[in-house]
């Protein structure tokens, strides 16, 4: 496996990666093929799985009930496996806006949203989101009205949250697929809201 681009000596940490990987391959604990397959799978895993779940919940009230009751099981219904984790889906309403964070590390619903963005893992987001969420959301360009309660959910390794945003006005009669196309990653983290035709 080689990185593209011009030659540069390996950094210490890159050297560690090659070292550990090759040792584990020698010991038969992993294979280069498994690693390459997982890297490819990761590259192709975006947030679209999450968007699909949200769109289904928007068009199917019974599904939404099941999703809010047991996120893990409801995802399995759509063929999305969430191994060993409890997924809690929190619903935005006109009264409550939800957002997620992991103050201790970087826990994130990866199986639905892919690898978290750098800012989600940053010191500043993790520190401030639980203390001054309204100011943080404003930095993201999301101005939440003072009458709306903001609820911030702190994730753990075993319990992941995802936000179920509100369906925007004016998107009535849209197909599930079209609805899924407006559900952004950030709207499922809670730092944005989906934009409808009127926005």
């Amino acid at each position: 496996m080689s990185d593209t681009g011009t030659y540069r000596p390996l950094s210490y940490f890159q050297l560690m990666e090659v070292t550990l990987r090759e040792l584990l391959v020698e010991k038969g604990l992993v294979t280069e093929e498994e690693i390459a397959a997982e890297v490819e799978a990761m590259r192709n895993r975006g947030y679209e799985r999450g968007s699909r779940v949200v769109a289904r919940a928007w068009v199917d009230p019974e599904y939404k009930k099941r999703l809010l009751a047991d996120g893990t099981k409801a995802c399995e219904e759509l063929g999305l496996e969430i191994p060993g984790l409890r997924l809690l889906v929190v619903e935005n309403t006109p009264e409550v806006h939800n957002a997620i964070v992991c103050t201790l590390c970087s826990c994130y619903p990866r199986m639905l949203l892919g690898i978290p963005p750098d800012w989600y893992k940053s010191r500043n987001y993790r520190s401030r989101m639980v203390r001054e969420p309204r100011a943080v959301l404003a930095e993201f360009g999301l101005h939440v009205s003072e009458n709306v309660t903001i609820r911030v959910h702190d994730s753990t390794a075993d319990m992941r949250y995802m936000v179920l945003p509100m369906r925007p006005a004016g998107a009535d009669g849209w197909s599930e697929e079209r609805l899924a196309s407006i559900v952004s990653r950030d709207s499922m983290i809670g730092v944005a809201v989906p934009k409808g035709p009127n926005d």
């Binding site: 103050t103 201790l104 750098d118 940053s122 010191r123 500043n124 993790r126 203390r131 930095e139 993201f140």
Partner: peptide, 15 residues
């Protein structure tokens, strides 16, 4: 590592 609530600066949103 327990960062919740500590003072911190502006969030760099560039990935």
């Amino acid at each position: 590592h327990d960062l919740g609530g500590r003072p911190a600066g502006e969030i760099d949103r560039h990935g």
